[in-house]
Design a protein around this nucleic acid. Structure first.
Lengths: 155, 155
DNA sequence: CAAAATAACTTCAAGCATAAAATATTTTAA
DNA sequence: TTAAAATATTTTATGCTTGAAGTTATTTTG
């Protein structure tokens, strides 16, 4: 006979991994939905816009268009539109690269840096709240466990 | 003086949670990108289309439009478009609900069920491969740990 | 029973996302 | 030197996504 178990029986690894994936997806989508809502309500902006600003904030000299898509792992055409709109709002500027008339370096303006600082602080607080179930130690452990093999993506 | 540590010093919980979130996001986006690529190459379909089929596959009597958006937690207008295209391809049908002329029940066709069965098998294999670093036991443990508080979403 | 509220669904506008094609420029190499 | 290849970016076509507004149908309520 089959033994009695405290948990439902362990199915094969494939099924358990699928379950993990579905859980992961539900969790991240839920958090993303909440972030989107908060960004909209508090700053009238979007997650993709924040992502671009966050990428730029880590590089004082700005990034080329292709470097932004590389860092964020999104398509080139995608970045064009987002940068267009951020530039319209005066949060960043396209600076021609001397010696290469194809390329532009995208840099945050003073206004952009100030706005991003406020957004980043709120973002961190929202995340800290939504992941409040995890202690600092738990969070660090899980971060380590979730390192999947990936290509590097520095500019 | 500050003590020497095997790990970098534990920053406050807020920072560790933010790090966890960024890692989670990078991981799930990476997996989603790979899935999207595979679905396109192997089945000429998309993740959202697969999601709708997967939801329907769990209910023999089909689901109403609003039930699909409820289960998948996406907007009503979104579902309209995806179901339109799946119906165009003959994978599902809208059946009028007797007694309520506002509502439609969406049901998979025989063709839809056959196509979904193939897709689901491939999907499970892709996930099992990408999450291959986790044993069945690890996967189960992590699935449990990642239960964030959420509203139920059964139809 | 008529008016108001609610519900199911679609349409719309704006933005995000990709892949593929087009444009312009720079580099390579024959 | 110049034709070909490579690089940087934008444009285009298509589809996903939301929130808001609109349509029609049903239920509630005064």
């Amino acid at each position: 006979m089959t033994p009695t178990l405290a948990h439902p029986p362990l199915e094969d690894a494939s099924k358990e991994r699928l379950r993990l994936w579905l859980r992961l997806l539900k969790t991240t989508r839920g958090i993303e939905a909440k972030l989107r809502e908060n960004f909209r309500a508090e700053f009238d902006t979007t997650l993709p816009r924040f992502d671009v600003m966050a990428a730029l904030s880590r590089y004082d000299d700005g990034l080329k268009m292709s470097e932004i898509s590389g860092v964020l792992r999104v398509s080139n055409g995608n970045v064009t539109g987002i940068v267009d709109r951020l530039a319209d709002d005066g949060l960043l500027v396209r600076v021609p690269v001397p010696g290469d008339r194809r390329a532009h370096r995208v840099c945050m303006t003073q206004k952009g840096r100030a706005e991003f600082a406020r957004q980043a602080a709120a973002h961190e607080a929202w995340i800290a709240d939504m992941l409040g179930q995890f202690s600092a130690e738990d969070a660090r452990t899980l971060t380590t466990e979730f390192s999947l093999p990936e290509e590097p993506n520095d500019p």
